[in-house]
């Protein structure tokens, strides 16, 4: 990797100061950034190691919500008893990502900034607008089985790779950011940007701005929730499609639902259209299917990924069915 300076600030102000320099990057667990640096895709001049900052706890919020420090390791988040009980989908989402070794390293903040696994993004010999703006996109007419089908643009079809973020999107999570101008809060669903003409800009983070925490509002519906990930092997693979869903049914009617999709869009995809159609409707399979199909109606598919719309639909239906019957999905 390109030589760089390494600093490990002791407090958040120093970290933000250090990262204000051009060419500086924050480093958390390193599981994505170190890989990208070795590949030459990320070439920071200064690496600001934030793992010494005190953002490594999960704390209760009034009313039953949780505040998750940005430096909480993925494995610690997944094992947290409160998360397991209040937001089971979040624990499942984390545990379905990567491997145990990587989860022991990766941080929540880093996970939000995970970059796509589109193979053309990773290969310097290929054209990629995200890696080199203006160079073109080899994925459009190349292998695009893993590519996104919602929210894509003519310049980029790369899918967002995170599992954790899909659950966060479903749970109305709010991201806390700290910069030189102070602290601000952004809904997770607004944190990641769609590619448009600038696929290299992936989030709303300002230069030098640091993710310090993610807050989960109380969500009783989330106690009945699931994360279902569909992939090419049984473990240790990125999602083809994933579904984060929470469901409340009373007297056969859907009274509350949270639904988000992974693997299908350049960002974690909150399925607001499906949610709108589901609430107040019957808790049955045909209603689930209609809602899912409506959400996927805008899908824009390419040579290899046309199956994703049907797969996403089937996975939404299966997950909601499981949540409404309380039974084993199998």
């Amino acid at each position: 990797m390109k030589p760089f300076a390494y600093v490990k600030p002791a407090d958040v102000e120093a970290a933000i100061q250090a990262a204000a320099q051009p060419g500086a990057r924050f480093l958390g667990g390193g599981t994505n950034l170190v890989d990208l640096m070795r590949e030459g895709i990320e070439q920071p001049d200064t690496v600001v190691d934030v793992t010494g900052l005190p953002f490594d706890t999960v704390d209760d919020l009034p009313g039953g919500g949780l505040r998750i420090g940005a430096l909480v390791r993925n494995s610690a988040l997944a094992a947290d008893r409160r998360v397991r009980e209040r937001y089971p989908m979040l624990s499942q989402a984390v545990l379905s990502g990567a491997s145990a070794q990587l989860r022991n390293m990766a941080t929540v903040g880093g996970n939000l900034l995970q970059r796509t696994r589109c193979p053309y993004f990773y290969d310097h010999a290929s054209a990629c607008n995200k890696r080199e703006p203006g160079r073109g996109c080899d994925a459009l007419d190349g292998f695009n089985r893993g590519a996104a089908i919602l929210g894509v643009s003519a310049s980029c079809v790369a899918a967002h790779p995170s599992d954790l973020c899909v659950a966060l999107a479903a749970l109305d999570a709010v991201v806390e950011l700290r910069g030189q101008d102070g602290t601000r809060r952004v809904p997770l669903t607004d944190f990641h940007r769609l590619p448009g003409d600038t696929p290299e800009v992936e989030t709303v983070l300002a230069p030098g701005e640091l993710v310090t925490a993610v807050e989960l509002p109380p969500a009783p519906v989330a106690a009945n929730s699931r994360y279902r990930k569909v992939r090419d092997r049984a473990s240790y693979a990125f999602a083809l499609v994933s579904v984060a869903a929470a469901l409340e049914v009373r007297d056969g009617v859907v009274t509350d639902v949270c639904l988000a999709l992974g693997g299908v869009a350049p960002r974690p995809w909150r399925a607001t259209e499906a949610e709108r159609l589901l609430v107040g409707g019957p808790a049955d399979e045909s209603a689930y299917r209609r809602a899912a199909e409506a959400e996927l109606a805008g899908a824009s598919t390419r040579r290899d990924n046309a199956f994703k719309a049907a797969l996403a639909t089937a996975t939404i239906v299966a997950t909601l069915r499981e949540l409404s019957t309380g039974g084993d999905p199998r």
Binding site: P119, A125, S126, G142, F143, D232, R233
Partner: peptide, 25 residues
Amino acid sequence: TLIDHRDGRIVNASLSEYHVPVHAD
């Protein structure tokens, strides 16, 4: 192994994108 039909480049030249079986398989 995915070989791009345009330039003969191997697209998934990695263990993360070439899927050999894992324990769970």
